[in-house]
Amino acid sequence: MLTADVDEDVVAAAAERVRLVDFFWLDPRPDLVELAHRGGALVGWQVGSVEEARAATDAGSDVVTVQGTEAGGHVRGSRPLRPLLAEVLAAVDVPVLAAGGIASGPALAAVLADGADGARIGTLFVATEESAAHPDYKRAVVDASSGSTVVTGAFATECPLCATSPRARVLRAAVDRVASFDGDVVGTLTIAGGELPLPRGAGMPPVAAVSGSVDAMALYAGEGVGSVTGVRPAREVVADLAAALPR
């Protein structure tokens, strides 16, 4: 659930159908946690600071995800993952997941060794056969090297999350391309009933149903992107991650 404009009926409906209802980008709210708990679900809250982690647990969250600035996509906080993770682990007594720049088995093993109970991994799974990302987006992730991402506000058009903080980590090449793009519409999204134009600087990442200048769209990627070496089945990615963990 994203932004402060949360539909409580949606929260209630989700809680009856899934094991975990996850919140991000809005301040922790006890009423939403209670609503999800009443539906039978656990609650997770993704945070970008120690203060927000404490607020999430005070609100009743069962799990906290610590997001470092290495993360791809919308960046909540302002600190790197591992020092922030250490402080959150010392501050809360619920399971803690790590997120941000984790795109390899060794990176996963490192945060687990730091004390995380698990991790969230995004960029690595963008480049999987099962991913709904546009093929050109997948290829851009595979071709990117370490140091090729940047936190920017360049993709804040029609982006609800960006209303409060237009900060997202994307491939630097996409920022350069959208800056030089000539026109107001970078492409279209084919949906039931027609096509939806995508304005220049739109916050939506390109999915398979998108056409147009994909290289000028929001190519979200974390700092671990250099570890992504190919488009593979998700089962192979998971197997490689597991193989790097201590037995």
Rank of each mutant, 00 (worst) to 15 (best):
G39L: 03
T69L: 12
L124Y: 05
V150H: 01
D114F: 10
G101D: 04
V150I: 15
L241H: 07
E158G: 04
R82T: 14
L219S: 10
L196A: 07
G224L: 12
A192N: 11
R120C: 10
L245V: 12
D215A: 15
Q46C: 11
A144K: 09
E34Y: 00
L189K: 06
R167W: 08
V63C: 03
M217Q: 14
V94Y: 05
G194W: 12
T69A: 02
L161C: 11
V10G: 00
V75Y: 02
F125S: 07
R79P: 00
V94G: 07
T188L: 14
P206M: 11
G101A: 08
P166L: 11
F24H: 13
Q46S: 10
E70S: 03
G201V: 07
D62Y: 08
L32V: 01
V126P: 03
D93F: 03
A127Y: 03
K138D: 02
S131Y: 09
A36S: 05
T188R: 14
D22I: 01
T157N: 02
F181P: 09
F181I: 12
G226F: 11
V92M: 06
L89G: 06
V225S: 08
T3G: 03
A132Q: 10
A12R: 15
V50E: 04
A154C: 08
A132M: 07
D215P: 08
V185A: 10
A91S: 15
L2E: 09
S145K: 14
L171N: 08
